[in-house]
Every structure is written in structure tokens, then in C-alpha cells.
């Protein structure tokens, strides 16, 4: 695991949502490498090469991070804060995933520097579409910047 690299970093504690998201990417013909991390702690360790990712080449950055907001222990906003506070990671586009557009955290996420957000719809087809559209957009956009 030490030198794991991925173009898409999915940070999601709900295994079902993660599976659906990954399937949506595949169905949408987005074949970029993807790593799924199950909570905020893992995410920070991966990004900054600490803990179980000690020694990982952290200059190999993901092209887009999909970040669930509601996670136990270190939640999405905390992860976002640390990503945007670090010179190394602050340029990586972060797409926030949330279950409801009602959530006050969305506003908070934007003020912390989130690049966009996805309300995870109940309807799977719709879900697939927004995930692939946004993933696609940020992968391409980031490609252009690099």
C-alpha cells in the first residue's frame, strides 16, 4: 500500500454509497484509478503520508477528491480544512458529497474552499449521472491545469 497512487480519491464511510459511486464511474466509462478510503483519518494519512500510509510518495496527488461530509471521528469538513490549509494539497479539486441540499454544511464547505458539491440522489440512474458528470468535469479540468 505504501506507494499507492490514484487519480480519484473517494472518501466515503458508507460502503453501499462507495460501491454505487465506483460502479457509476465504471458505467460512465471513467477508467481512472480510484482509491476508496473509509474515513477522515485514513484520508488524511493517505494525503500526508502518515500512519498506515507512512512513506507514501505524497507528491503523487489525486486529480479529484470526492469527499463525504458525514463521517465518524474526523468528518468531511475537518478533512477539507486540512486539505485546503496545506500548500501541497490545496490545489486538488474537492467535490463534496452530501445526502441533502438542505445541509448547512454545504455553505460551510464552500467557504472552506470546496469546488462543488453533489447531493446524492435516491434514484440510482440520476446518481450515476451526477457522479460521472462531475468526476469527468474535474478530471478533465485538472488535466488541463497540469
Amino acid at each position: 500500500m505504501v506507494n499507492n497512487t490514484a487519480e480519484i480519491l473517494l472518501i466515503e464511510d458508507n460502503m453501499n454509497d462507495a460501491e454505487l459511486t465506483i460502479r457509476a464511474f465504471r458505467k460512465g466509462n471513467i477508467k481512472n484509478t480510484l482509491i476508496h478510503l473509509k474515513n477522515g483519518v485514513e484520508a488524511l494519512e493517505f494525503l500526508f503520508g502518515t500512519g498506515q500510509f507512512e512513506g507514501r510518495d505524497i507528491s503523487k496527488k489525486p486529480k479529484v477528491i470526492l469527499l463525504d461530509l458525514k463521517m465518524p471521528k474526523v468528518d468531511g469538513l475537518e478533512v477539507l480544512t486540512q486539505i485546503k490549509a496545506n500548500e501541497l494539497t490545496k490545489a486538488i479539486p474537492v467535490v463534496v458529497l452530501t445526502s441533502s441540499n438542505e445541509h448547512p454544511d454545504i455553505k460551510r464547505a464552500y467557504s472552506l474552499g470546496a469546488n462543488s458539491y453533489i447531493v446524492k440522489p435516491v434514484e440510482f440512474d440520476e446518481f450515476s449521472k451526477v457522479v460521472t458528470d462531475l468526476g469527468f468535469y474535474w478530471l478533465l479540468k485538472n488535466q488541463a491545469q497540469v
Binding site: N16, D17, L20, T98, S100, K120, V122, F124, F127
Partner: peptide
């Protein structure tokens, strides 16, 4: 908010797995 988040997640799974 909890209802919104916590009830929708299993619904998404039901819908998604049925589709799969």
C-alpha cells in the same frame, strides 16, 4: 437533517442494488 441523510442513504442502496 438526520432524517434527510440517514433515511436517504438506505433508500439509495435499495434503489441502486435493485438496479444492479
Amino acid at each position: 437533517y438526520s432524517v434527510s441523510h440517514d433515511l436517504r442513504a438506505p433508500l439509495r442502496a435499495i434503489n441502486g442494488y435493485a438496479k444492479m
